[in-house]
Lab assay of single mutants.
Amino acid sequence: MSIQHFRVALIPFFAAFCLPVFAHPETLVKVKDAEDQLGARVGYIELDLNSGKILESFRPEERFPMMSTFKVLLCGAVLSRVDAGQEQLGRRIHYSQNDLVEYSPVTEKHLTDGMTVRELCSAAITMSDNTAANLLLTTIGGPKELTAFLHNMGDHVTRLDRWEPELNEAIPNDERDTTMPAAMATTLRKLLTGELLTLASRQQLIDWMEADKVAGPLLRSALPAGWFIADKSGASERGSRGIIAALGPDGKPSRIVVIYTTGSQATMDERNRQIAEIGASLIKHW
């Protein structure tokens, strides 16, 4: 067993022997300050990975656009099909120029040879490739089937209704393509630590998230040396920005953090900075 597999395998073990964890309200002060700075709603939740206990939250049951954070859930659904023998990570999918949508930095380079399901999930999570996400959605039956998968997991909140890039419209009070911080955190925890996926698939999912290449300005920018993070960011219209992450010190994840914001007129750089500052406060008061 590799060191990485050993780390994931021990998560349920540590759950039975973990020391108590305590929240620090200073982080919530920073979350509220971020709302003021951005002139927008901010949703935040911090969940103990082992016990599932909510350590701190702000607007945990308000809806926010999922943006590209849905791609982790999508690849979780794909992996569940792999575990059930209904899909193969090595299966090659061919597509055409007509399938390409905006922001497809990986898939646009493989029009001649296609990409495997594994490569598409990697592109969707690590590079947030939109065409990769659409091709993967097709393999499971579309957005409604992803919503059904989540319902079967016990998540009756999170929903995907449209494809890339339309799902990023982020219209106020529109429940399409939205989640709540509490629902997303719970669902992510189930995918990473529960029995829904095999150990190999849980490890694959967290490996893809750990290799995320487009979330550098967010929580990763505040991460001390030696800390672990596996994450997925998202951005969409109407000043929306978000990130879902499993992180912790000593090279292993111990908490789930979900941050969403929407309705801001601030620049992308400012939205990134506010999320990074929330992360810095979280780490300082860990």
Rank of each mutant, 00 (worst) to 15 (best):
residue 3 I to N: 15
residue 3 I to Y: 14
residue 3 I to G: 04
residue 4 Q to K: 15
residue 4 Q to E: 13
residue 6 F to C: 10
residue 6 F to G: 06
residue 6 F to D: 06
residue 7 R to V: 08
residue 8 V to S: 15
residue 9 A to S: 13
residue 10 L to Q: 07
residue 10 L to I: 13
residue 10 L to G: 10
residue 11 I to T: 10
residue 11 I to A: 15
residue 13 F to C: 12
residue 13 F to S: 12
residue 13 F to M: 14
residue 14 F to W: 07
residue 15 A to K: 05
residue 16 A to L: 15
residue 16 A to V: 13
residue 16 A to S: 14
residue 16 A to T: 12
residue 16 A to E: 05
residue 19 L to A: 15
residue 19 L to I: 15
residue 20 P to H: 15
residue 21 V to I: 02
residue 24 H to S: 11
residue 24 H to Q: 06
residue 27 T to R: 00
residue 29 V to W: 05
residue 32 K to V: 09
residue 33 D to V: 11
residue 36 D to C: 14
residue 36 D to E: 15
residue 41 R to P: 09
residue 41 R to G: 02
residue 41 R to L: 10
residue 42 V to A: 03
residue 46 E to K: 03
residue 48 D to I: 04
residue 49 L to V: 13
residue 52 G to R: 01
residue 52 G to A: 04
residue 53 K to C: 10
residue 53 K to M: 15
residue 53 K to V: 14
residue 54 I to G: 01
residue 55 L to C: 04
residue 57 S to N: 05
residue 57 S to L: 04
residue 57 S to C: 08
residue 58 F to C: 05
residue 61 E to V: 11
residue 61 E to A: 13
residue 63 R to L: 05
residue 65 P to H: 06
residue 65 P to S: 05
residue 65 P to Y: 01
residue 66 M to T: 01
residue 70 F to C: 05
residue 70 F to A: 06
residue 72 V to R: 00
residue 73 L to S: 08
residue 76 G to V: 05
residue 77 A to R: 08
residue 77 A to G: 05
residue 77 A to L: 09
residue 79 L to C: 02
residue 79 L to S: 01
residue 79 L to R: 00
residue 79 L to D: 00
residue 80 S to W: 12
residue 80 S to L: 12
residue 80 S to H: 15
residue 81 R to L: 08
residue 81 R to G: 05
residue 81 R to Q: 10
residue 82 V to S: 06
residue 83 D to Q: 06
residue 84 A to T: 15
residue 88 Q to C: 10
residue 88 Q to F: 14
residue 89 L to Q: 03
residue 90 G to R: 10
residue 90 G to W: 13
residue 91 R to S: 04
residue 91 R to N: 08
residue 91 R to G: 02
residue 94 H to D: 11
residue 94 H to S: 14
residue 94 H to C: 06
residue 94 H to Y: 00
residue 95 Y to I: 11
residue 96 S to H: 12
residue 96 S to F: 12
residue 97 Q to L: 14
residue 97 Q to H: 13
residue 98 N to D: 13
residue 99 D to G: 04
residue 99 D to P: 02
residue 103 Y to A: 07
residue 104 S to G: 02
residue 104 S to V: 02
residue 105 P to Q: 02
residue 106 V to G: 03
residue 106 V to A: 07
residue 107 T to V: 07
residue 108 E to A: 13
residue 108 E to G: 12
residue 109 K to E: 14
residue 109 K to S: 11
residue 110 H to S: 09
residue 112 T to R: 14
residue 113 D to A: 10
residue 114 G to S: 02
residue 114 G to A: 03
residue 116 T to G: 02
residue 116 T to E: 12
residue 119 E to R: 03
residue 122 S to R: 13
residue 123 A to V: 04
residue 124 A to T: 13
residue 124 A to S: 14
residue 126 T to G: 10
residue 126 T to R: 03
residue 127 M to A: 07
residue 128 S to G: 02
residue 130 N to S: 04
residue 130 N to T: 05
residue 133 A to V: 08
residue 134 N to G: 00
residue 134 N to S: 01
residue 135 L to A: 04
residue 135 L to I: 08
residue 137 L to E: 01
residue 137 L to W: 01
residue 139 T to Q: 10
residue 142 G to E: 15
residue 146 L to W: 01
residue 146 L to G: 01
residue 147 T to H: 03
residue 147 T to D: 05
residue 148 A to S: 15
residue 148 A to C: 11
residue 150 L to V: 08
residue 150 L to G: 01
residue 151 H to R: 14
residue 151 H to L: 13
residue 152 N to K: 13
residue 152 N to D: 15
residue 153 M to N: 09
residue 155 D to G: 00
residue 155 D to I: 12
residue 157 V to E: 08
residue 158 T to G: 15
residue 158 T to R: 00
residue 159 R to C: 02
residue 159 R to S: 05
residue 160 L to R: 06
residue 161 D to A: 03
residue 166 E to K: 08
residue 168 N to K: 03
residue 170 A to R: 07
residue 170 A to E: 12
residue 171 I to T: 13
residue 171 I to R: 13
residue 172 P to G: 09
residue 172 P to D: 15
residue 172 P to V: 08
residue 172 P to H: 09
residue 174 D to C: 03
residue 174 D to T: 02
residue 174 D to F: 02
residue 174 D to M: 03
residue 175 E to S: 11
residue 175 E to L: 12
residue 178 T to K: 01
residue 178 T to A: 01
residue 178 T to L: 00
residue 180 M to K: 11
residue 180 M to W: 10
residue 180 M to Q: 14
residue 182 A to E: 10
residue 182 A to P: 04
residue 182 A to T: 12
residue 183 A to E: 06
residue 185 A to V: 02
residue 187 T to I: 03
residue 187 T to S: 13
residue 188 L to S: 02
residue 188 L to R: 00
residue 190 K to E: 12
residue 190 K to D: 11
residue 190 K to Q: 07
residue 195 E to K: 12
residue 196 L to E: 09
residue 196 L to Q: 12
residue 197 L to A: 01
residue 198 T to L: 08
residue 198 T to H: 13
residue 200 A to S: 14
residue 201 S to L: 06
residue 201 S to R: 06
residue 201 S to T: 07
residue 202 R to Q: 15
residue 204 Q to T: 14
residue 206 I to E: 06
residue 208 W to F: 03
residue 210 E to G: 06
residue 211 A to S: 09
residue 211 A to E: 14
residue 211 A to W: 03
residue 212 D to S: 03
residue 212 D to N: 14
residue 213 K to D: 04
residue 213 K to R: 10
residue 213 K to T: 08
residue 213 K to H: 09
residue 214 V to A: 09
residue 214 V to G: 07
residue 215 A to S: 11
residue 217 P to H: 09
residue 217 P to Q: 10
residue 218 L to R: 03
residue 218 L to I: 02
residue 219 L to Q: 01
residue 219 L to I: 14
residue 221 S to N: 09
residue 221 S to H: 10
residue 221 S to E: 10
residue 223 L to A: 06
residue 223 L to D: 00
residue 223 L to G: 01
residue 224 P to Y: 00
residue 224 P to L: 01
residue 225 A to S: 09
residue 225 A to Y: 11
residue 226 G to E: 05
residue 226 G to S: 07
residue 226 G to R: 05
residue 226 G to N: 06
residue 228 F to G: 00
residue 232 K to E: 08
residue 235 A to I: 01
residue 237 E to L: 14
residue 237 E to R: 15
residue 237 E to F: 10
residue 237 E to P: 15
residue 237 E to M: 15
residue 238 R to Q: 13
residue 238 R to L: 08
residue 240 S to C: 11
residue 241 R to L: 04
residue 241 R to M: 05
residue 241 R to V: 04
residue 241 R to K: 06
residue 242 G to A: 10
residue 243 I to W: 02
residue 244 I to G: 00
residue 245 A to T: 01
residue 245 A to E: 00
residue 245 A to G: 04
residue 247 L to H: 00
residue 247 L to V: 08
residue 248 G to R: 08
residue 249 P to G: 01
residue 250 D to N: 13
residue 250 D to A: 09
residue 251 G to K: 09
residue 251 G to Y: 07
residue 252 K to M: 10
residue 253 P to H: 05
residue 254 S to F: 06
residue 254 S to T: 11
residue 258 V to C: 08
residue 259 I to V: 10
residue 262 T to Y: 06
residue 263 G to A: 13
residue 263 G to I: 07
residue 265 Q to H: 14
residue 266 A to C: 11
residue 266 A to E: 06
residue 266 A to T: 10
residue 267 T to P: 15
residue 267 T to R: 09
residue 268 M to L: 13
residue 268 M to A: 06
residue 268 M to W: 10
residue 268 M to H: 05
residue 269 D to L: 09
residue 270 E to D: 09
residue 271 R to G: 07
residue 271 R to W: 04
residue 271 R to A: 13
residue 273 R to G: 10
residue 277 E to K: 07
residue 278 I to P: 00
residue 279 G to C: 07
residue 280 A to R: 06
residue 283 I to C: 04
residue 284 K to N: 10
residue 286 W to L: 09
